[in-house]
Write a protein that binds this DNA or RNA. Structure first.
Lengths: 204, 204, 204, 204
DNA sequence: AATGAATGAGGATTCATTCAT
DNA sequence: TATGAATGAATCCTCATTCAT
């Protein structure tokens, strides 16, 4: 009871360090090959510490995904909030998307997550909820901010397109690991831009 | 001279069965979770038989990838050979690509392979070679058949675009497993078509 | 500061138990047929515990050999330290050697080790180092204590003879397992004594 | 039925080749690590052939040991037969023994055999029988040829000494693999000679 | 909260042996 | 007799998880 504040801080720091370490190791080695031992060591903690903060390896993985997903969505919302017009919003959206090529980690983590979830119906459920939750926060208003009020039909088309953005990005980033020259960051930006424009024909 | 024939046939059949079983199990469970036991059983063979045909689990995985890759490339070349004009060829190419959405297996297998290769530099080498070999077979003539003689600059752009096709497909197929309704086969075809057209603006 | 003590004690006890169990099982079954499972069980521990203390079966085997070798060499040095004269020392040396027939375990273990090392050049290296280290500790002074200052020529002869002692013992102990009556402990003592005297003609 | 002679020759040759190959591989790798596959390959035959000639790996091992043992005993008897006097016989016996250091294979094989037999009471039986048989052939007359008619007491002493010869040789040869310089063939001959003389004080 | 020793289920791999040819 | 594909028992080792400290 001496310094609960410090304790809490320590606890939070451990959590954060573990999550960072987990991201590093999961992405580097893949979920199955990632060793809790190594995650703990990378975080400067011991194996046991992981279990004080997470129920299991799977739990750590899911919490990590939830964190990172939330962070990205929040970033997007933040950048959208600053926009004054629909055009501006739309441009910000596009820029945000194309800018994602700068991150070699997150898209791989996402692939890893999805392949993981694909094989575990139980986790798949939690996985989707996490994603929905993050997305849902401001979904409708965001959509309107970007596209205005449009027919349900068009809206569903937009949803479909939006759904495609992530996977396309992930696939390309993965490929770029094998063809770093032909798929340079610049090249990827151009490709992503073209694809974005194909999926979201600029509102008149 | 009857026996060698029978032996050979048996051997080939076993190989083929093992590869088919491997594809099923690897895609269903992922590389790490796939059990040799189950692959063997699925093939109607015993665990040991796998090791008469493949050096290791990894080897089986790589050989499987090589086989399937080669098969796809050959299918594409075959369909191109029938074409009489550049337009026809190009249309065939597009159709081939868009038609790939019908296969839920191969794109997932490819993702699995690439994430696998990403973590094993040695296999990465072999992996790329297999792909190159298959691609190389008729590459230049194919390119000319599709695009005619164009500036090296444009050619390199086409290469980049070609490189993007597979990853985009894989990413989308994976996502469709989570959103089977929003990303129906039909929807995927439309998206893929649009992306294809964005990457390869139709020649004139 | 109670816990680190308890932990350490537990750790040491486990190590010691595992080494004892390993000795029992390796000698009884031979290196290849010895099962880690059984060693662990004999030690009252689980299979996994072995791997917390030793890198591999091979490592366990080598560490065991190092331990036991060291212990024997130390015993010899200890008994030599008590001696007052060269004659006494020499007699103690002889007695020590002849007394080794009482141990049916150690000579067999040594054979097992050497045949093992013969087939693994890497271990052979470590194996020799362990032996050298143990031997080296007091080698020169011991030699002088036993034989006085003698010509290098004679010294090298003594070295050769010393080298022969162990193998001769091991060979005989092994044989005595097949001819327990003809090669009783008493008989072995007589034979060993005679051989010792032939190899080290008593210093006047 | 065309050429039974040729068939038989082929059969015998295969047997001999398999035994030679077995000796090579068993000595090089040890019984447990020796692979039937490799033995067969070394013999220029296939794995299956081994089973046409031997019941099992163990059987092959035992037959090999029996063969080699018999051969050595026969060689000794042969060289003794030529001797005219007891002195000559005795010298021949000594020379035969000391000469054994030239063979780096057989003593190791013997060790391997004995450690093997030690752990398999069933084989131990067969093992001893093989040895006895070989030895027995001419045992009593040989003994008399070497030592004349002596008291049963002395005879039993000689038996004991004779029993020691093999193990001593094996132990030393094994050690010489680790100390090839200090235990050169020449050095071994000197040591063996001294030990022989200590075990068999020259008759009068 | 943190540590790390211990657990033990799980799985890839090896290889003697069998058997159809 | 010879071959070698197929079998499957056997075992080392890994690593997520637990728990006493």
């Amino acid at each position: 009871m001496e310094s609960p504040g410090k304790q809490q801080i320590r606890t939070q720091e451990t959590q954060a360090r573990l999550l960072d370490a987990a991201e590093t190791v999961f992405v580097r080695d893949g979920y199955e090959n990632a060793q809790l031992d190594e995650i703990a060591a990378t975080a400067g903690r011991s194996k046991g510490a992981v279990y004080n903060h997470f129920k299991s390896k799977e739990d750590l993985f899911l919490v990590l995904y939830e964190h990172r997903t939330r962070a990205y969505v929040e970033r997007l919302f933040l950048s959208l909030q600053k926009c004054k017009s629909r055009q501006e919003s739309f441009a910000a959206f596009r820029a945000f998307y194309v800018g994602l090529v700068g991150d070699r980690i997150w898209p791989i983590l996402t692939l890893e997550f999805k392949l993981f979830a694909l094989r575990r119906p139980e986790s798949k459920e939690r996985f989707r909820k996490a994603f929905e939750m993050a997305k849902a926060t401001n979904y409708d208003s965001t959509h309107e901010q970007l596209f205005g009020q449009i027919t349900p039909d068009k809206k569903s088309g937009n949803e479909m397109s939006a759904l495609a953005l992530g996977p396309v990005l992930s696939g390309l980033i993965l490929e770029s690991h094998f063809e770093p020259e032909k798929l340079s960051e610049e090249a990827l930006q151009r490709i992503l831009g073209r694809i974005f424009d194909a999926l979201f024909p600029a509102p008149r």
